[in-house]
Amino acid sequence: MTKRGNAIEIKDIRKSFGTLEVLKGINFVIPRGSIVALLGPNGAGKTTLIRILSTLLTPDAGQATIEGFDVVDEADNVRGVIGLTGQYAAIDEYLSGRENLEMMGHLYHLSKPDTKKRAAELLEKFDLADAANRPAKTYSGGMSRRLDLASSLIASPPILFFDEPTTGLDPRSRLMMWEIIDNLTKEGATILLTTQYLDEADQLADRIAVLDGGMIIAEGTPNQLKAKVGNERIEFEFDSLECLKKAEKIISNDSILVNEEKYTLSVANDKGVKKLKSLLEEFEKSNITVVTLSLHKPTLDDVFLKLTGHQATAEELAEEEKEPKKGKK
């Protein structure tokens, strides 16, 4: 197979459901071997984009290629190079873990011995070996999700789509999933994953694309995105309101944030350690007691707030309560 261009190229993809314009012209490219997180709140259109790229949904306009194959005109070729783990578990709950994997192996047209070998390997790797012969319906949420992911890996496709791979998982299962995904990139896979969790995108992705209102409103490495919000900040906690006020006077010419209830004050750390040292010296001179000191790196929450004018998580929660998310048809 000849490999042309980038692993994934998306040009001006648009999609509406009735009058609801979900994707309003998505553009980006994913180089081979990298891992990109599509970050956006509930209803942003993440699943819709993943479904288009995995040939399940036809776009209204625009073009997308996977390993050089068009997702509409060469859908069969695309299906041969992708593995999809959808938002909802796609396992057969009456079959055992092993039977699920072997069925997928056969459907990916691997030979019988390859299928057996690969299934055993994945069960071992994903910590499912002990439960391999139990019906999948007896699996915990984390186990089902791991089996789901393993099913998409049986033929080691070079391109992987994971739609919210850790949503609904307990923290331990989530960490395990992160480790698995991290290892996959080390093996050379190209991964596009979606997430609502900012820390997850930060943790896993080389690049992040922020999807909001049907558009990619920002794209870059986690650090580039953070840079948009500003530098690291130093936060001081004082023992009294009095100390806080004094400190506030000393550094009044800087952009500072003050919390009078918690006796804390934070200031942009634009000159690194030097700045910190000089501040501490001045506090010392004025007899100001610093209780704790912490460095606050900007999070993707800050990025989202800055870019969209609303906090990702808070907005979602409010939305969820008003109108529980409609299942896909």
């Binding site: 479904r51 040939t55 299906r79 999809l84 959808g86 909802y88 578990a89 796609a90 997928m104």
Partner: peptide
């Protein structure tokens, strides 16, 4: 109505 149909449809079959 369960996700498995998406997986089947994303396969080269």
């Amino acid at each position: 109505h369960r996700g498995i149909i998406d997986r089947f449809k994303s396969l080269p079959m």
